[in-house]
Amino acid sequence: MIIRQLSVFLENRAGRLTELTGILADNDINISAFSIADTTDFGVLRVITGNPELAEKVLKEQGFAVKITDVIGIVMHNKPGALHHALQILTDNGISIEYMYAFASSDDRATAVIRTDSPKKAIEVLQLHEMELLKTGDVYQI
């Protein structure tokens, strides 16, 4: 249930992101989902991919600062109130969210990627409420 997300430090300079996507493409690594958190000087790219270990290896070889971070993915129906319902469960259980981003898939469903300080506890309470969670194997099919 824990998804290994790839986090990459990126300087804000022209073409840097393109270099990175080029490296992933050359190594046949598919990007399932991503987000960029940025400031004026730098950004942090977060990527969900089917092969985070390989991505980590090839990016490190190219000199990027890379880190694998544990996140969880909540799969929801793409309809009003779904995200609110999921977040309410986490809030009610005292689980704070460091950051999150979401993406929609083709089957009318959406996935929220969530980084929390206690992913195991989050999985527990979400499962208790019969929420569907993204599995590592699913990442290939997104």
């Binding site: 986090s7 430090f9 400031t39 730098f42 942090v44 971070t69 950051y99």
Partner: peptide, 15 residues
């Protein structure tokens, strides 16, 4: 330079 071992993926940590 951001050192690999101290790199956090949270912007607030880096800030």
């Amino acid at each position: 330079e951001v050192e690999e071992q101290f790199f956090s993926d949270e912007v607030k940590e880096l800030e």
